[in-house]
Structures are given as structure tokens and as C-alpha cells.
Nucleic acid binder design. Structure first.
Lengths: 145, 145
DNA sequence: GGAAAATGCTCAGTGCACTGACTAATTCTT
DNA sequence: AAGAATTAGTCAGTGCACTGAGCATTTTCC
């Protein structure tokens, strides 16, 4: 029957937004490292020596997904992963020197990129957009843990 | 050095939003069909007999991605794909009866789901959120056609 | 009519993201 | 102290999404 207007569907718009973002990321920030990988580096700057589970809560990623992302960062020498001697279940994570250096470099670039990405909106609208997305995401994540 | 607050990063928020959405989709709409697959069905209701490239513009998905999604829908008997006799490069796509039936069923469910998803916001805020995301996504997609 | 350009699709490769099933280690209970 | 429950991580499987390379088929331009 009647088709629906996908532009009134937040899921569809969210996908488009994320996609557009990751394209711009590749162009303006880095082709070597992705936005989720940066999120992990950033979390480790804020909280060194955490395990994967804590990390996954922090960046809102699944524990399997975290394992993948961390594995890639380890492979590139940006993160070190060691078994916790006090609790043999945990992997303790920390940035390598190179990881810390890269993070520093990318912080300024991401700031610049965010400015470009949000340029079509004025200051108030930018603030509103971030706040509203945050509220919806928080509430939806609340629904299932 | 100083870590950044990821909640001021639209890309990170967009990913969270999309993720939260797809979780709710699985719970409230369907575990069999995904939101991108629904987008394709919906596009074919609106414009039957289009080729994959037109479809990809319509739902804002890459040509390779479209090929994957369509292949899954074909495998499930929801979409028919035939080589265009007038232009041997094109695949002409159309919904099967079952695809059309499923689309009808899902339209009502997606409407309900969107209501729940956006429930933390009032009417004005919902409208604002969709409008602002649309503007940012449009502009970013504009940058790289 | 034939070479060159453009178009539509496919395929391989990489990365994100989930679920569900499994293993291993720790903690809790009795 | 032994068995049960919880917790952390891994692994296989599926799906979305891109890039870049390649193939076949038009279309365009001489």
C-alpha cells in the first residue's frame, strides 16, 4: 500500500547521519583509524588500566565488538593488553606511547571536523541536536541494560 | 593529554542512536527483517521496477551495500530481481506478493516503534530532532555527492 | 562502424556491531 | 572446602557499510 516517508523515521536518519559522519571522518581526521577506535583511545586516556567490560560500558559498545576493536588497536601497537595478575578473567588495557601520541594529534582534528560537520546549524541548533540525540539514546539504552 | 567528552561528538552520538534504534527494532518490529531491508521494501513500494543504482540513491546506501541487502531479500523471496531486457547492465527490482504483504504489516509496527523511541521528547522536540538530523545529513552527503 | 567513455553491477577485502554458545576464572553459599 | 552462580573474554555466525578493482554493456564521439 502506501509507502512511508523515511525522513520521518529516526532510525533511518540516524543511519544516514552516522554514515555521513564516517565519510567525513575519513577525509578530515584519519584514514588509518576509525571513530570507534578513537573512542577507545580516548576512554583509555581518561581511565587507564581498565578492563574490556568497563571500557565497553564507557563507550557504549558490546563486549564482542570491543574485543574486535581492541584487537585491531593492539595489532597496530596503539594499545597494550595484559592479563590481570590479580583476576585472571580480566584483560588490563593501556595506551602505548604511540597510542597516546596519536590520540593527542587526533583531538585537534576531530574538533575541527565536528565544526565542519555541524556547520549547517547555528550554535543553538548544534547544542539542541546533541542534547536531543543524547536524551533519546540514553532512554533507549535504559530500556535494555 | 586531556581526554575529550564524547557526548559532544555528533558521530559518537549518532552511532549510539543508531545502535539503540536497531535494538528496539529487533524487539518491536521484527527479528527477521532489518531496518535497512525495510527501507528497501518501502522504496520499492513507492517506485516499482527501478534498478539498484536508483534504489541506492533513494535510500542513501552505497551500490555494493544495496547489492548485499537486495540479495538477502531475494533469497527470502521478498523481492524479484531480473536483468533488464532493454539495458543489459540494469537489474530491475520489484516486490513479490509476500514482500508487499510484509511491508504492509511492518508499516504499522514501525510507526508504533518510532513513537516509543521518541517518547522521551515532546512533540516539538521530536520534530526538531528529525529536522536537524536531516539538515546535517543532507549537507554532509552533499559534500561528497 | 569502431574506439573511447560512461554506466551498472559484482567481487574481494576491511571494519563495525550484534547474538548466542562456550571456556575459564572468581566469588558466593552452604 | 565443594558445588553453584556470576563474571570476563573468546569464537562462530550474520548483517550493514565502505573502498577499489574488475567485467559487461551501453552510449558517445569521431
Amino acid at each position: 500500500m502506501a509507502a512511508v516517508d523515511l525522513n520521518t523515521h529516526p532510525g533511518h536518519l540516524a543511519r544516514r547521519l552516522q554514515q555521513a559522519h564516517s565519510l567525513l571522518w575519513g577525509a578530515m581526521v584519519s584514514e588509518e583509524i576509525t571513530s570507534p577506535q578513537f573512542a577507545v583511545l580516548n576512554a583509555l586516556v581518561e581511565k587507564p588500566d581498565i578492563d574490556q567490560r568497563t571500557l565497553s560500558e564507557h563507550v557504549h559498545l558490546d563486549r564482542s565488538t570491543i574485543a574486535d576493536v581492541v584487537a585491531r588497536l593492539v595489532r597496530r601497537g596503539l594499545v597494550e593488553r595484559v592479563r590481570d595478575p590479580h583476576d585472571g578473567r580480566r584483560n588490563v588495557l593501556k595506551l602505548s606511547d604511540e597510542g597516546a601520541r596519536l590520540h593527542r594529534k587526533l583531538v585537534t582534528r576531530t574538533t575541527r571536523m565536528n565544526r565542519v560537520f555541524l556547520a549547517p546549524l547555528d550554535e543553538d541548533e548544534q547544542e539542541t541536536l546533541l542534547r536531543l540525540i543524547g536524551r533519546v539514546a540514553d532512554a533507549a539504552e535504559e530500556l535494555r541494560g
